[in-house]
C-alpha cells in the first residue's frame, strides 16, 4: 500500500513539474526572444507578464479541438499523447538534487536515449494522420532528422560513459565530485559537448534545425492541423524535451547537482557547498536551455540536405574520432 501511495505521489509531482516547467519555459522563451529582438515581451498579465503563459494555456483549453476531414481520427488523437507519455517517461531517472531521483536505474543514459526515440514516432503519427501535405512533409523531414542526429547524440553521451565507466546517472555524477567533466576532460570532452548540444537541438526540433515545423516553408509542419489542447500537448512536450536534454547535458558535462569546486580552495569550496544542490542542477540546466534558446533567436534555418550533410559529413565522423580520442584519454588516464 505504501508503495502504491509512493507511486501516486511521484506521479502527481511529475505532472505538477511538467505543468510548471511548461509555463516557465514558454515564458522564458518569450522573454529571451523579446530581449534579443529589442522588445519587452509579455508584460501585461501578472507582474512583468509572469502569468501570460497561464492565460495562454487557459485560452488553449477553451479552444475547440478540430479533427480535419479525412484524417485518421484514431491516430490523429493518439499522437499528442504518445508525445506526452514519451516525454514523461524521460523524467524518471533525472536527479533533481542530491539523492532526489525517482528511479536510479543502472542504465540511466541508455534508458534516456532509448525512450527519447519515442518522440519521432509521435511526430510521424501526427504528420501522417493529419491528412495534410505540409504535415506529411514535416513528418518525413523530422523522421530523417531525428534518426540521424540520434547517432551523434548517442556518441557524445558514450564519450562520457567511457570516461566514467558506467551508464548509471548517479555514477556519472559521482565521478564528477572532484571536478566537472567539461573541465577535467580537455578538448575531447569539449568536442563531445558541442556535438551534444548541436545534436540535441536537432533532436528536439529546435531552430536552426526546426525543419519539421519550418513555419516559412511548411506553415507549421507536423502540427499544422492541431488546435486547442492537442496542440498544447505537443507544445508542452517540446519544451519538456528541451528541459530533459539540457538536464542530461548538465549531468554529463557539468556534474548535475554537483557544486562547483576548485582544487584545494577549501573556503571557496565550502561556500559553494552551501548552495543547495537543486539550485546547482536547475541553474546548469537552465543555462543550457538559455543557450539553446539563444541559438533559436540568432540563426537562420538550415535546408534539409544541409542538415543531413552536417550530421553525416561533419558531426558523425568527428564524434566517432572523438570517441576514440576519449577512449585513449580514459585508458591512459590523461584526465584530471
Amino acid at each position: 500500500m505504501a508503495l502504491f501511495l509512493e507511486f501516486v505521489i511521484a506521479g502527481l509531482l511529475c505532472i505538477g513539474l511538467f505543468a510548471i516547467l511548461g509555463l516557465v519555459l514558454v515564458l522564458m522563451e518569450r522573454k529571451v526572444s523579446a530581449y534579443m529582438q529589442i522588445r519587452l515581451g509579455p508584460n501585461r498579465v501578472g507582474p512583468k507578464g509572469a502569468l501570460q503563459t497561464l492565460a495562454d494555456t487557459l485560452k488553449l483549453l477553451s479552444k475547440e479541438g478540430l479533427t480535419p476531414r479525412g484524417a485518421d481520427r484514431f491516430l490523429f488523437n493518439l499522437a499528442p499523447f504518445v508525445a506526452m507519455i514519451g516525454t514523461m517517461l524521460l523524467l524518471a531517472p533525472i536527479p533533481f538534487a542530491k539523492g532526489f531521483q525517482l528511479w536510479d536505474i543502472n542504465i540511466g543514459v541508455l534508458y534516456i536515449s532509448a525512450v527519447s526515440s519515442l518522440a519521432v514516432i509521435s511526430i510521424l503519427l501526427a504528420g501522417w494522420a493529419s491528412n495534410n501535405k505540409y504535415s506529411l512533409l514535416g513528418a518525413m523531414r523530422s523522421g530523417a532528422q531525428i534518426v540521424s542526429y540520434e547517432l551523434s547524440a548517442g556518441l557524445s553521451i558514450i564519450a562520457i560513459v567511457v570516461l566514467t565507466g558506467s551508464l548509471s546517472i548517479s555514477d556519472i555524477i559521482a565521478s564528477q565530485a572532484d571536478g566537472w567533466w567539461i573541465f577535467k576532460g580537455h578538448l575531447p570532452v569539449w568536442i563531445a559537448f558541442v556535438t551534444f548540444i548541436i545534436a540535441v537541438t536537432a533532436e528536439t526540433n529546435r531552430a536552426p534545425f526546426d525543419l519539421a515545423e519550418a513555419e516559412s516553408e511548411l506553415t507549421a509542419g507536423f502540427h499544422t492541423e492541431y488546435s486547442g489542447m492537442k496542440f498544447a500537448l505537443f507544445f508542452l512536450a517540446e519544451y519538456i524535451n528541451i528541459f530533459i536534454v539540457c538536464a542530461i547535458g548538465a549531468i554529463l558535462f557539468f556534474g548535475g547537482w554537483m557544486p562547483f569546486h576548485i582544487g584545494n580552495w577549501e573556503g571557496f569550496n565550502r561556500i559553494m557547498d552551501y548552495i543547495p544542490s537543486s539550485v546547482w542542477f536547475f541553474g546548469k540546466t537552465f543555462f543550457l536551455i538559455f543557450v539553446i534558446m539563444w541559438f533559436r533567436w540568432t540563426f537562420p534555418r538550415l535546408r534539409i540536405d544541409q542538415l543531413l550533410n552536417l550530421e553525416w559529413k561533419y558531426l558523425l565522423p568527428i564524434s566517432m574520432v572523438n570517441v576514440l580520442l576519449i577512449t585513449l584519454v580514459a585508458i591512459l588516464g590523461w584526465h584530471f
Binding site: L110, Y111, L118, I121
Partner: peptide
C-alpha cells in the same frame, strides 16, 4: 533493463521508424 533499452532503441527507434 539493458535488454529493455536495447529493445526500445532497436525496434521502436529503428525498425518501426
Amino acid at each position: 533493463e539493458f535488454i529493455f533499452a536495447v529493445q526500445v532503441i532497436v525496434y521502436v527507434g529503428g525498425i518501426v521508424v
